[in-house]
Amino acid sequence: MAKPMREPTFWILTALAAEPRHGYGVLQEVSRLTGGQVKLLAGTLYAALDRLTAEGLVEADHDEVVDGRSRRYYRLTSDGATALEAEAERLRLSARTARQQLAAGRPELGPALGRTAAFPKLGRLA
């Protein structure tokens, strides 16, 4: 069984799931997807991109030069998409288990706990 992903890794892969992005684009997308709750630093982002590239989950897509500065776009590989899918499923199952346990302990809140609207963040993670 694969190890659970660290949160920055999960969000970086998620940010790259729809389309290739460059560093700043990934940071913006992560911030947008998490409602500003996850704000990565540039050093952390590139360390993660290096690691994910070495693990074959991410790869360079193309380069651009803007105002003389290099800008590389990264995309998810098929292994990266598989890993993200597996992690999303793991989180979904974890969230479902947590909801079931909460409902078992507090039956009067059972139906409400099942609705993602009551736990927007949990719903998005799952």
């Binding site: 460059h22 560093g23 700043y24 940071l27 540039a42 050093g43 982002l45 590139y46 803007v66 500065r69 290099s70 800008r71 590389r72």
Partner: peptide
């Protein structure tokens, strides 16, 4: 690459 990202941020 980092410089570009840092200046954008």
């Amino acid at each position: 690459e980092l410089l570009d990202t840092l200046l954008e941020m």
